[in-house]
Amino acid sequence: MDLRVRRHPVLGDMGGGDEVTIFVDGRPLPARAGEPIAAALYAAGIRATRYSRGKGEARGPFCMVGRCTECAMTVDGIENVRTCVTPVRDGMRVDTPGVRRHGPARV
C-alpha cells in the first residue's frame, strides 16, 4: 500500500523522492531523506511498529510527537527508539520488537 501524498493542493509538490534505503526486519524500504522512520514505514502501509510486551498485540504510531512511545522500535541495535521523532538514515536497520501473539478479537 502506498500512502504517500505527492501533490498537495496547498503544500504543492511534497516530493516523491525516495532517496534513502532503510532495512525493516531485513527488508529494504525506500524512504524520503529526513523523514521520521515511522512516516517511512506508514507510507508503505507498515502500520505495526511493535508487538506489546504482555499480550503480543500489534501497536503503531499514535501521537506522532514522541510522547506515546507506541512507535518505539529497535534501530541499529538500540532498543526503544521512538521512530516518530527519529529521522531515517541511509542503510539504517529497523527491527520490530516483540512477538506477535494475537490481535484483538473481532467483536
Binding site: 502500520r47 505495526a48 511498529t49 506489546s52 498485540e57 500489534a58 501497536r59 503503531g60 504510531p61 499514535f62 501521537c63 506522532m64 510527537v65 507506541e70 490481535g103 484483538p104 467483536v107
Partner: peptide, 12 residues
C-alpha cells in the same frame, strides 16, 4: 481496539 495501529490522535 483503540490500541490497534491506524487508530491515532487527530493531531497525529
Amino acid at each position: 481496539g483503540w490500541t490497534l495501529p491506524g487508530v491515532m490522535g487527530a493531531g497525529a
